[in-house]
Design a protein around this nucleic acid. Structure first.
Lengths: 248, 248
DNA sequence: TGCCCAATGTGAGCAGTGCTCTTGCGCACC
DNA sequence: GGTGCGCAAGAGCACTGCTCACATTGGGCA
């Protein structure tokens, strides 16, 4: 292994991915063109199929790479947090939220690819994208579970008290994570907590997507950073994460 | 006016819109093909340009039509509400939320067109889409404003107390609506309320989009209706709308 | 060192797309 | 009853994904 040919091959493949991202950032997912990539690579259009089986496979490649990069970013931000896992749950959640948002702002096309409307005629193969794609949600779930176990979460509100059972694969995974945490999650509280995490997650997706996609009008607010901070803090509130410094 | 020719023209245009929606529902926005529509219309491909200037103009047409249909749906649901404007704010908000969601479930491609990632190379002309596109948010803002004036909204939480000013066109519009309501909104509370509405709105977008786009895995929960109800109720909670029957 | 064959690059070609242009037909109006 | 305008037809351009037969070339083995 690592013969010159294989080395050249991975180099070419990396260059293809780089050009593909460049194209994606400029022209959007649906306009991703293998021919254009081949052209910029200085190669005839058909030769690209020596490296990438099809356009859809390239998309899958980019999607998993995007998920991985995003999750790495979030986990890096959490690792840089003073106190680490011992930091207050709300601080961890907000750190992850802001890492999520700034990644999306930095790479709007990538965000669009991961969390925008699905590319027509293409659906990502779950067995390849799911592992990387669920890392962030699961991390958020772990954060909330830990905070819950430490009593940092306000009482679950409204319709969720004694809420309905939510049997789902994601819920199961989240409950597993909850089980790993000191104290774990007893049966009464777990379904509601799972619902809270998912609700917070979809709210995060909505807030970030609205900003990235310009859904609130182009440059809706004079102060995007301030507004984003308010939005993300509101979501942290909605999830029940108490601000330990303000309200003891 | 209404000569036979003009009549035939509007009939053909309506048929084009119908076929376009059909195509959209089946193949997605980016795959919308004028040639295919012309083919199904029994017309040669170039003839379609007598009716629709370009593919992008057809998209604009569909987008405004979609916004209008959605807003009409929401307002119809609110009009059918027993009590009408006098109904509790939370009931009105939840009614609008569920109308929004079921419209999205019923017309996923339309939802994707309106609130998904923007179609690359195309951006909707704001002067044509904005009026219809903001009807639902503004309605939600009016509902929250009214509820606020009637004291049905829980104290604004966390970081929003005395929150930062949010000077924006949307905020201005929302404040105008608030001014129409009995009692109006005084300066202290308005910015926070505006932030609440926008936060609730983006959360709604996120929740609905996650469900429509299958972001939580395909068929994530065994009981989609139950889960949606919990999600939407959580958002109503987050916005601060109190459940008058449960917690007086 | 030299040779073989697999890995890679080439170019033509098929079917599809959006869009433009010229040509000619037929209907509606005067 | 003419006739001018609205409309359809068809060819054509440039682009896409993808396939296939063929040419080239360079790495690894004898």
């Amino acid at each position: 292994m690592s013969t010159p040919r294989e080395l050249a091959r991975v180099r070419t493949l990396a260059e293809i991915r780089r050009l593909a991202w460049e194209h994606l950032e400029q022209h959007g997912a649906a306009a991703l063109s293998l021919r254009a990539i081949a052209r910029e690579l200085g190669i005839v259009s058909s030769a690209i199929y020596r490296y990438v089986p099809s356009r859809d496979d390239l998309l899958t490649l980019l999607i998993t790479e995007g998920y991985r990069d995003l999750a790495d970013d979030v986990e890096r931000a959490l690792a840089d947090l003073p106190g680490g896992e011992a930091a207050p749950g709300r601080v961890q959640w907000l750190t992850a939220s802001h890492a999520l948002r700034s990644w999306a702002i930095r790479r709007p096309a990538a965000w669009s690819l991961l969390y925008g409307s699905p590319v027509p005629g293409y659906s990502a193969p779950p067995q390849e994208t799911t592992p990387e794609g669920t890392r962030v949600v699961l991390r958020l779930g772990a954060i909330l579970s830990a905070a819950l176990a430490r009593g940092e979460v306000a009482a679950v509100v409204g319709p969720l008290s004694g809420g309905p059972a939510l049997p789902t694969a994601l819920a199961a995974e989240l409950r597993v994570i909850g089980g790993d945490v000191e104290g774990g999650l007893d049966e009464d509280v777990a379904p509601a907590a799972v619902a809270q995490v998912i609700a917070g997650w979809t709210a995060l997706l909505g807030a970030v997507s609205s900003e990235v996609f310009g859904q609130l009008g182009r440059d809706p607010l004079g102060e995007p950073e301030v507004f984003a901070r308010v939005q993300l803090a509101t979501i942290a509130d909605a999830v029940g994460l108490r601000d330990l410094e303000r309200a003891p």
